Simulated assay, not measured.
Amino acid sequence: MKYRTLKKCLTLQWSDEIRRDMKDMFGTLCALTQRISRLDDDHFIAIATGHGGTYLGNIIPLSQSVNCSKNDANPFEWIRTRTDIDANRFADVVAYLADLNGLTFDEYRQFVDWCYANSRTIDEIKRDNERYGYVVSSLELWRESTGIAFPIRIDFGNHERKEAAS
């Protein structure tokens, strides 16, 4: 998981402690089916979009079969294809992720949809990071593109500007 995130030059803020925080929320159950199963750490916003990254507000535990089904799909579109997942449970997971990202449910949905509608290549990610001088979060890019003014509650730990090369 870390390799793909680093290769994509996306936010990486993951540790055993953060994984324990996620497990405190979901236990040993799939976040969406509530079944005991072998779990994968799923990127709610797929790394393949060039957005999201690996941090608590973008990772949920999913059973391997659910994770394989979701793959790189927009979760709001994918969920409509799943009759075995309770819509209220999905909404609870979205509300949890929205809160971790400092957004309302509706804002989070808009953010996720924006990420899928504005996917980025590795070169585009690198250009964005260079423009900002650090690994810029997708949340910052979304906020900038929509003109929505709100403070970002998440400390991605990457806001120190790189020193310009002399």
Rank of each mutant, 00 (worst) to 15 (best):
L6V: 08
S145G: 04
K2S: 13
D21A: 05
G102D: 14
K23V: 10
R127N: 12
P151I: 12
L12F: 15
Y3W: 05
N129M: 00
W142Q: 10
W114T: 12
R161D: 05
W14D: 06
R82N: 06
A48F: 03
G147R: 09
E163L: 11
I59M: 14
S119Q: 15
I36M: 11
G57Q: 06
R80I: 04
T83Q: 12
A87K: 14
G102W: 03
K126C: 11
K2W: 09
L100W: 12
E144I: 14
T54S: 15
L39P: 01
Y3E: 12
G157C: 10
A95H: 10
E130Q: 15
F44E: 05
A46K: 03
I85W: 02
Q34K: 13
Y55R: 02
R161I: 13
L6S: 13
H51F: 10
A165M: 09
D84W: 10
C9K: 02
F150H: 09
V93H: 00
F156N: 03
E160M: 02
D99E: 14
A91I: 04
R35K: 14
A48T: 12
A31C: 12
I85S: 04
G27Y: 12
P75Y: 03
R161F: 12
S138Q: 06
K70S: 00
D84E: 14
I47G: 00
S137V: 02
D21P: 02
R120T: 11
F26C: 02
R35P: 00
F150T: 13
E77K: 10
K2Q: 14
L62T: 08
Y108R: 01
A164R: 09
T33L: 10
C115R: 01
E160H: 11
D92Y: 07
D128G: 01
E140R: 03
S63I: 04
G27I: 13
R80L: 13
W78V: 01
I45P: 00
N129K: 01
V135I: 15
S37W: 03
R120E: 13
T54A: 11
D128N: 13
K162D: 09
R80Y: 07
N129V: 03
E124Q: 15
L10S: 09
T83E: 13
E140Q: 15
D72M: 02
E140Y: 05
A91M: 06
T146A: 08
G57S: 14
F26L: 04
M25Y: 09
T49S: 08
R120C: 11
D24P: 00
Y132G: 05
D42K: 10
Q64A: 06
D84N: 15
